[in-house]
Design a protein around this nucleic acid. Structure first.
Lengths: 193, 193
DNA sequence: GCTCATAAGGTACGCCGCGTACCCTACAGG
DNA sequence: CCTGTAGGGTACGCGGCGTACCTTATGAGC
């Protein structure tokens, strides 16, 4: 039977299969044998490309989510912040996020993987978006200029992340997001005046 | 040879061995066979008491750390907060903390284990300590009464936790703790006026 | 077209770790 | 003294990762 796949085509097939496994079984359930079987190939082809399961997991996750970065502009700082948190919450509580958390958990005792993850999960982009948002609010006179600081900008996402880590899993209720904004973020911004 | 250990004695021996393995190899390196060998017994005795590795890990961790809860009273809110963060940072960056993080990572996709962990890791006690601290500050007139809220009280620890999750591992530098206090916690409290 | 290095496919295997089964042996308590 | 219970010893099944080794297609270069 002709047509033996090669190079890029095969690579995409593997990533596709790995992503599907991730979706269905999470990272801890993604086995190399099943990925190989599903991609209609064998483990050799995989190990020739990625050194170990974790690397494949990360690559597949990236392939799975090319999440566009939000940049809301509701006109008020409160609205923008809430919107950002809600989108993040949606992303993280989706199957997507479950996978991401699984990966993170697996990477927790492997610094190398952790940095790989951070690079590829767009955390930096996210932080910059928050800072930009704060900056626009300051320009509108809605926030003191002194509040435009990384620590302030990243605080809400940090809190959301921590909330996920605390609760077992699925989704953080919307009230919590509102609390983070109204009881922490906005007072925090105000407090910098 | 006489003296075959039984019941509680044996149980303690197992926990002791498991704790030692945790210390030396972390959770991911703690194998049942080695725990059994080190305790001078066999896996049967272990599985008769704990249903799986994770349960033993948690029990051993608890056995390992009966961490006393701090309750600093430096006279200022800033001093108290910094002290609390520093102690937490010390705990978490010690071998102890590494183990705890390993356990947490392992428990990440198992809600049952997560709740078990939370119960036993004294997170609630910690939160109450922070709230008490805030309350005393309010009583001294150092903080507005409106700032005495759980979300506010737990924010610094949440941020520290998130900081650990972000960076690969070991210890969060002291400057970060200071930033959390000066750029987030204190402005946040002030902002509730 | 032919040749040949290269990459894919097939398969089996080593290793390790978890959890279980089975049988033997000490020991406590009646 | 006898017996049930719990500990000890050992072996094993299973699954998953990563590796080894050989066979087979394929496309690039002559």
């Amino acid at each position: 039977m002709g047509t033996r796949r090669r190079g890029e085509e095969l690579e995409r097939a593997i990533l596709h299969a790995a992503a599907a496994e991730l979706r269905e079984s999470g990272y801890s359930g993604m086995t190399m044998d099943r990925v190989a079987a599903r991609a209609g190939t064998n483990k050799n082809a995989i190990y020739r490309r990625w050194p170990h399961r974790a690397a494949l997991g990360i690559a597949a996750y990236r392939h799975l989510s090319d999440a566009a970065m939000p940049n809301p502009d509701t006109g008020t700082l409160r609205g923008d912040a809430l919107e950002m948190l809600r989108r993040a919450n949606e992303t993280w509580s989706s199957p997507h996020g479950t996978i991401l958390r699984g990966l993170l958990a697996a990477a927790a005792d492997d610094p190398e993987l952790l940095t790989l993850m951070r690079e590829r999960s767009g955390a930096d982009t996210m932080d910059r978006a928050w800072l930009g948002m704060l900056d626009r609010a300051a320009a509108r006179g809605e926030a003191p200029a002194a509040a435009v600081r990384p620590r302030v900008a990243t605080a809400p996402m940090m809190l959301l992340r921590a909330e996920y880590a605390m609760r077992g899993i699925p989704s953080v209720p919307d009230e919590v997001l509102v609390e983070i904004v109204d009881e922490v973020f906005l007072p925090l911004v105000r407090g910098h005046g």
